[in-house]
Amino acid sequence: MPRFIDVETLRPAPGRINWFKYSSPQTFFPLAGAAVPWFAAAAAVLCAVGLYIGFFVAPTDQQQGEAYRIIFIHVPAAWMSMFIYLVMAFWAGVGLVLNTRLSGMMASALAPTGALFTFIALWTGALWGKPTWGTWWVWDARLTSELILLFLYFGFMALTAAIDDPRRADRAAALFALVGVVNIPIIYFSVQWWNTLHQGASVSLTRAPTMAATMLAGMIVMALAFWMYSIAAAFARARCIILERERNSDWVAQYIEASK
């Protein structure tokens, strides 16, 4: 893939680092393009390994039987739903502070994938809750705050789409995302603060996980797979957004010409 970086415009004064070199969409576009296949491949490999561990290595749970195997997608999806929101809010904040176009594009690129993982966490949680709790849904602190997270993602996407000028849309949605960040610690600590139906954290940063080694391994590998997938999806969507928003620039014309 030919590189379309106009180095002349990017060369900083001698001796000074151009911190903004990779914040220009034109420079980021080929980098993301080169990275997507690698992250996608890593996701596929990790997912295969994780599923193998989850179904063929991890034993049957003495209490829940086989139902617990939903954990291998439920927990990674829930982690990713929170993590992606934080990364999205980070780029939204950077976009507000530094007024860099690419930051807002990256935030918009992350939102759909974050919403997807939030829905997956809610869906797999409901299917796990039915046999073990006896109900698809309960207005539990953890479940309710995760549902609010889903609405925050939809709100972010709706607000971005509602404003014609992309730069104004990014600023408005960035403010919205930053206000919504408070929901993430609420989700994480909801099981301790309110201690309603959802069980507490088996894996936490402070103490050793209270899980069997193979079950934990399967879950961690799947979490890494979902993480690699999220990066690949966000970079691919960011490239689409870049082409859509920079459609009138010369380097896009060159890129389109070259890809004919």
């Binding site: 039987g65 086989e66 139902a67 939903i70 869906w123 797999t124 299917l127 046999p131």
Partner: peptide, 10 residues
């Protein structure tokens, strides 16, 4: 283990 609907549904 009888949970096929839930696991495979997920």
């Amino acid at each position: 283990g009888g949970y096929g609907l839930y696991v495979w549904g997920s």
